[in-house]
Structure formats: C-alpha cells, structure tokens
Simulated scan of single mutants.
Amino acid sequence: CVCVCVCVCVCQVATNTMDNPLLKYNAKEYFFKASLCHFIVDELNAKLAIEKYEEMFPAFADSRECKLLKKLLDAHEEQNCEAFTEAVKEFDSISRLDQWLTTMLLRIKKTIQGDAGDLK
C-alpha cells in the first residue's frame, strides 16, 4: 500500500530530525503527516502510530497537531462529521492548512461518511 510506504518514510524523516538540534522543531510536523497517512489506512493504525510518536518525541504529545489528531480520532470513532469539521476549522484558524493536509483530511472525513471508496 502506498500510504504505508509514505508513513514509514515520513516517520523516518521525523526520527532523523528530532535528534538534530536545528531541525527538531520540524519533527512534530513530520509526525503529524505520518499520522494522517496512518489514518488513511485505518483508525487503529493511526491510534497506534500516535502513541508511538508521543513516546518517541514527547514534545509531539503537547503539540497542536497531536491534539487535533486526537480530536479527529474521537470524531471518527463516533462517526461525527460535525465534530471532525469543527476540529479542522479550529486548527485552520490558527495554522492554515496546505493543499496536501486538506486532501488528506478530506479523505479521512469521507470514511466517516461511509464513502471511503478506494483511498489506499
């Protein structure tokens, strides 16, 4: 699966940056993107990845990105599109989402609506 390969690659980049004093602040973004890739695969995959990333890089656990992921997981678990959309809007109001993030989030949201199609 392409998403799994992307997850592994992005996670590796994050792991490499978190040990570099000049790049460690970018690690949370890479862990965020890797988590979204895992989310595309399935909810459990994302949950386990997030837990792993929090252990590997404790600063990720306190980040806005991680808090968003947890809200998205809760909304997905409850099949609540409104809560999902609100969490994304709240995040976007402070940190604008780029095209890639928007695309990934829309793919995940479609799985809530029961319209997953072939996203993998």
Rank of each mutant, 00 (worst) to 15 (best):
A46N: 06
Y53C: 00
E90G: 14
E90L: 13
A14R: 04
L106N: 09
R64L: 14
D92T: 10
F91E: 04
Q12N: 11
Q79C: 02
K70D: 00
K71I: 07
M104K: 04
Q12K: 11
F57P: 01
L73C: 05
L22C: 08
K109Q: 14
L72S: 12
R64C: 09
D118C: 11
C3E: 01
T111F: 08
T102Y: 00
V10D: 06
C7W: 00
V2F: 10
E78T: 13
T103I: 05
E43M: 08
K24Q: 15
I50M: 07
A75R: 04
L73K: 05
N45R: 13
Q99A: 12
C66M: 04
K28D: 11
F57Q: 07
A46W: 06
A46E: 03
K70W: 01
L36W: 02
Y53I: 04
A116C: 12
K70Y: 09
E65Y: 08
L105N: 09
M104E: 01
S63D: 05
M18G: 01
S35G: 14
T17L: 08
L23Q: 15
F31Y: 15
F84S: 09
Q79N: 09
L23V: 10
G114W: 11
E51D: 11
L69W: 00
L105E: 06
L48N: 08
C5D: 03
L44Q: 14
V4M: 05
E54L: 12
D62W: 09
A14K: 05
Q113Y: 14
K70T: 04
L105G: 13
V6L: 02
E43D: 12
N20I: 05
E51I: 09
L23A: 15
E82L: 11
S63C: 10
V41S: 06
V8F: 01
N16G: 13
C9P: 00
A14D: 01
V6F: 01
A27K: 08
C11Q: 15
P58I: 00
K89H: 11
K52C: 07
D19Y: 06
P58D: 11
V6Y: 01
K67T: 09
A83N: 13
C3F: 10
K52I: 00
D118Q: 13
V88S: 02
N80L: 05
D74N: 14
C66K: 04
